[in-house]
């Protein structure tokens, strides 16, 4: 299996998987902690719409995905400020609207089936050199944003009210976090496709959460789980000759389920319940 990994034709897809895993592990941590999972699903669907529009106009689909998902994320971030219910409705509406746009434009394209399928489930084996350069550029921008504003993101994630009250421009960092998800969606649309993007984004970070009491540890574990899921999924897909995105999605989901079962936090929670129940029973007696 390792021979396949070092085959010249596999280097480019493998690098794409590693890039997607790195970006998802970092962005995923803030997505999970801020409760942006649904929002991230909506944004990846908007990148699908962008890629579809780009196909019609003969532009690189990744650039189309980037433009539309950035625009959509800006709109969503604006709409979601202040009123949670309105934000929820807006995200739901845009979810459907962007999918409708994607389907509309794909129905106009001659290469409908192949193109649509590649956006929906990813096409990592078909990553071109230009795609790879685009992924690297997007990943560098995303990681630089996190490195530059890491401490501010930590404050906003933990206590947005106090962050704003003590002088941080909370709305600016809110926009930046949503932009990060948009950047990830561009990477994901090529590697795992829109449907499995959320799994790659959320599962490693959620698994890491179960074993972390500090943000740095959660980031490190998330990176580990994400890379392991990505590379293992890639190798298994080659070995069994099945879709790469499906195997990556299965590996990431399995990692999350295993983490949930082995979680010390859940065990502690169960233990607390036991103590509380025994105390209640003792009181009643």
């Amino acid at each position: 299996m390792l021979d396949m990994l070092f085959h010249p034709a596999m280097i480019r897809p493998l690098v794409a998987v590693i890039i997607a895993s790195i970006v998802s592990s970092v962005v995923g941590v803030f997505t999970v902690l801020r409760g942006f999972s649904t929002l991230s699903a909506a944004i990846t669907h908007s990148s699908f719409a962008g890629a579809s529009i780009a196909v019609i106009y003969g532009v690189n689909p990744l650039l189309g995905a980037l433009a539309v998902s950035l625009g959509f994320s800006g709109l969503t971030a604006y709409a979601s400020r202040g009123n949670e219910r309105r934000a929820d409705v807006f995200v739901g509406m845009m979810f459907g609207f962007s999918t409708a746009i994607a389907v509309l434009f794909l129905s106009l394209a001659r290469t409908y089936t192949a193109t649509a399928w590649s956006f929906i489930v990813g096409d990592v084996l078909g990553v071109s050199l230009i795609d790879l350069y685009t992924l690297v550029a997007v990943a560098v921008v995303a990681l630089c944003i996190v490195a530059l504003f890491y401490k501010e993101f930590k404050f906003i994630t933990f206590d947005p009210e106090a962050a704003e009250a003590m002088g941080l421009r909370a709305s600016l960092y809110h926009y930046l976090m949503v932009f990060l998800i948009a950047l990830f969606s561009v990477v994901a649309v090529k590697v795992v496709g829109i449907i499995l993007a959320v799994v790659l984004l959320v599962a490693p970070a959620a698994a890491a959460y179960e074993f972390s009491h500090g943000l740095e540890r959660m980031l490190s574990l998330s990176l580990l789980v994400s890379l392991a899921s990505g590379v293992a999924g890639f190798l298994l897909s080659l070995y069994f000759n099945v879709a790469t995105s499906a195997m990556i999605g299965i590996c990431a989901s399995a990692a999350y389920l295993a983490a949930l079962l082995a979680s010390p936090k859940r065990r502690r929670c169960a233990k607390c319940k036991e103590v509380a129940t025994s105390r209640r029973v003792a009181k009643e007696v």
Partner: peptide, 12 residues
């Protein structure tokens, strides 16, 4: 339940 240490909170 968010994963932060005491030093993280005070440094915020």
């Amino acid at each position: 339940t968010k994963p932060v240490l005491v030093k993280d909170v005070v440094l915020m």
